[in-house]
Simulated assay, not measured.
Amino acid sequence: MTDAPRARPLSPHTSIWRWHVTMATSIAHRVSGCALYGGGLILAAWAVCLASGPETYGAFQALMGSILGKIALFGLTLSAFFHLAKGVQHLIWDVGFGYKPQTASLGAVVAIAFSIAATLAIWGIAAMTGAL
């Protein structure tokens, strides 16, 4: 008799499941929720900097106005709209509709399209009004 440990099998999802849009958007929904927590920290930092005086607030504005700050804010905008759209799809599922694979996939594609379109619209309006 040998005391060597037996090789444990891999989880079945790694070998038999294929990626599809509803799986990807489910994962992205969780990721966008985590990103929104980061946005909450940025909002808290904004409030602290605002209360700390003009110099501190100016430094915060410079950071958020930099290219990295704008990328972060763009990502947060996209995350917020995607999380909203996917949340609406979950509400529809909660009332018992949209479970057919074709309908669920369509809802996932709509959530992606809405989040991209709404983000581009908001950032386009911001650019046209001089807010960027």
Score class of each variant (00 low, 15 high):
Trp46Ala: 08
Lys86Ile: 14
Leu36Tyr: 03
Gly58Cys: 04
Phe114Cys: 09
Ile92Thr: 12
Pro101Ile: 14
Ala28Ser: 10
Ala47Leu: 10
Cys49Gln: 04
Gln61Val: 02
Leu36Glu: 01
Leu73Tyr: 05
Pro12Met: 07
Thr77Ile: 04
Ala121Gln: 07
Leu106Asp: 10
Arg8Cys: 13
Leu63Arg: 02
Val95Thr: 11
His20Thr: 11
Phe81Asp: 00
Ile16Leu: 04
Ile112Phe: 13
Leu84Ile: 13
Gly69Trp: 03
Phe81His: 01
Ala117Glu: 03
Thr25Lys: 01
Leu73Gln: 03
Ile92Ser: 09
Met64His: 02
Ser105Val: 04
Ala47Ser: 08
Val48Ala: 11
Leu41Cys: 12
Gly96Lys: 06
Ser15Gln: 12
Ile116Lys: 09
Lys70Trp: 05
Gln89Lys: 01
His13Tyr: 08
Leu63Gly: 03
Phe81Ser: 00
Ala117Val: 11
Ala85Leu: 06
Trp93Ile: 15
Gly69Pro: 02
Phe60Ser: 02
Phe82Gln: 00
Gln61Glu: 11
Ala7Val: 09
His29Val: 15
Gly87Leu: 05
Leu120Lys: 14
Val48His: 09
Ala59Cys: 06
Arg30Ser: 11
Ala80Tyr: 07
Ala35Cys: 11
Ala111His: 01
Pro12Asp: 14
Ala111Trp: 02
Ala121His: 12
Ser11Met: 11
Leu36Asp: 06
Ile67Ala: 10
Thr119Asp: 06
Ala35Leu: 15
Gly33Asn: 03
Ala59Met: 07
Glu55Phe: 12
Ser105Glu: 07
Ala118Lys: 02
Leu36Ser: 10
Gly40Met: 04
Gly87Cys: 06
Gln61Thr: 10
Leu68Phe: 11
Leu41His: 04
Ala85Met: 08
